[in-house]
Write a protein that binds this DNA or RNA. Structure first.
Length: 451
RNA sequence: GGCGACGUGGCCGAGUGGCUGAGGCAAAGGACUGCAAAUCCUUCCACAUGGGUUCGAUUCCCAUCGUCGCCUCCA
């Protein structure tokens, strides 16, 4: 069974399942007010790999991931561009899922929207007020963090230490709060702002409430895993948890956080890649699979640099895998090599060690190539194992696909010329095909073209 | 000020108290090929610095230098 680092206990431990055979996961999704960036891409890819791997091992995965479609950033942009806020959220959500599609990130099982859950949030906030753990001020309702026993668990900091170091930052709503770390659950609307009714006045929910309500509604108390980017650990996840704890509910059993995307060579990157911080730009300029490949070769908890060299290396390594898929596409597959798959699971179960698992993938590719060259009997099972691992990774290999009749004819002509030792014609034909964007490879069964 | 991460070969990026340590990319040489491509083989002598613990450290501890993240709305 999968062992994962748990941010709450700060150790790698087994991901215990509330219900055998099924994994319930909540992933904090995007606030839809702009195009997805590389950070979004990393998070969604990391959890897509997690999900596919779990499914590949035979588990049923229920993945809920929200869309935050009401938020200050959205309102600000709407005001700035003088257009309806829903216009922004709808458009951005469409762009989001289009980008996810290109990345090969499967759509979550559930995609709840904050605006669909306002009533439930109001009800929850009401409960917190009733039990004296939240309080009303003249600009909203706040949660009293001092009423939460172990506030700071995820941040791994004591409340007092956090406050001391606050720096020069302005404390939001400081004048009204009982404690500087108290956070807003309900924001009273200013004139012209979108709002929903509540016992405390018209307004909108604070950021941290939606995930509590949605995760508990869709997945139920004590769900298995809550995940998101490292930057969400505090305050977002801390504050989600605080609300659940304040309500006396069991929340996530395990917390997983992925590392950041780093642009170590900021200047260089922007020069060579343009505004590569934007995920859409990256996918436009490179095979979208390259980002997945790059992330697979790094560990999910560490920082990862996304730069030209990095992406190029990933693109080139994919070319090797595609070539493998192409040259083995006509070979009968057998039962996947059990030994390889067992090793694969060992590595993946060890805190999702995809770098070790990809090393195994490449190693298996080489072994399979050797077997294919030798026409050895184990080729089929090794090839099958490679495809199994790719499935678990969510990596789709390109074996070439359909070849138009005229191209196939040229390839046949090339073979004929070679057979006749008319190498000048053969070379010319090959150059033509290559100029057309085709990869031309000589195999035992003749010239194979793909792209 | 508090909490935390990290410094590995040309680049990226794993990992381990003891034949000096994956994998990918790049480069070089070789096999194969009419030539290529694909494939395979080989090579490319790397673990920030200074101490300490140890029979032995890249891996453990301390210090130093350097990089970075979080500490109220950013995946």
């Amino acid at each position: 069974m999968l062992h994962l680092y748990d941010s709450a206990t700060r150790e790698v431990r087994e991901l215990a399942l509330r219900e055998p055979g099924t994994v319930s996961i909540y992933l904090c999704g995007p606030t839809v007010y702009g195009p997805p960036h590389l950070g979004h891409g990393r998070a969604t890819l990391v959890y897509d790999v997690l999900r596919r791997y779990l499914e590949w091992t035979g588990l049923h995965v229920r993945l809920a991931s929200n869309i935050t479609d009401i938020d200050d950033s959205i309102i600000n942009r709407a005001n700035r561009e003088n257009r309806p806020w829903q216009d922004i959220t709808h458009k951005c959500e469409a762009v989001w899922f289009e980008a996810m599609g290109k990345l090969g990130v499967a759509r979550p099982s559930d995609v709840p929207h904050a605006t669909e859950y306002v009533e439930q949030m109001v009800a929850m906030i009401g409960e917190l007020v009733d039990i004296g753990r939240a309080y009303n001020t003249d600009d909203g309702v706040y949660l009293s963090v001092e009423s939460v026993e172990d506030y700071g668990l995820l941040a791994n900091q004591r409340l007092s230490d956090m406050i001391e170091g606050g720096g020069d930052r302005e404390v939001f709503g400081a004048g009204n709060k009982r404690h500087p770390a108290d956070f807003v659950l309900w924001k009273l609307a200013k004139p012209g702002e979108p709002s929903w009714p509540s016992p405390w006045g018209d307004g909108r929910p604070g950021w941290h409430s939606e995930c509590v309500v949605m995760s508990l509604d869709l997945l139920g108390e004590g769900f298995d895993l809550h995940c998101g980017g490292m930057d969400l650990k505090f305050p977002h996840h801390e504050n989600e948890r605080a609300q659940a704890v304040a309500l006396g509910k069991r929340f996530a059993n395990h917390w997983m956080h992925n590392g950041f995307v780093v642009d170590a060579e900021g200047e260089k990157m922007s020069k060579s890649l343009g505004n590569v911080a934007n995920l859409l730009d990256l996918m436009e300029q490179y095979d979208p699979r390259a980002y997945r490949m790059l992330l697979l070769q790094s560990h999910y908890r560490g920082p990862v640099t996304v730069g030209q060299d990095n992406i190029d290396a990933a693109v080139n390594s994919l070319a090797g895998l595609d070539a493998f898929a192409a040259r083995t596409s006509s070979i009968d597959v057998a039962e996947p090599d059990a030994d390889v798959l067992a090793k694969f699971r060992d590595r993946m179960d060890d805190d999702l060690d995809t770098p070790a698992a990809t090393a195994l993938l490449f190693d298996t590719v080489r072994r399979a190539n050797i077997a294919v060259d030798a026409e050895a009997p184990e080729a089929g099972s090794l090839i099958a194992a490679v495809h199994e691992m790719c499935t678990a990774f969510g990596l789709v290999l390109n074996a070439g696909g359909d070849v138009p009749a005229d191209i196939a004819a040229k390839a046949a002509a090339l073979d004929a010329a070679r057979a006749a030792k008319d190498f000048a014609t053969a070379d010319a034909l090959r150059a033509e095909l290559q100029a057309d964007g085709w990869t031309v490879e000589t195999t035992k069964t003749g010239t194979q073209v793909r792209r």
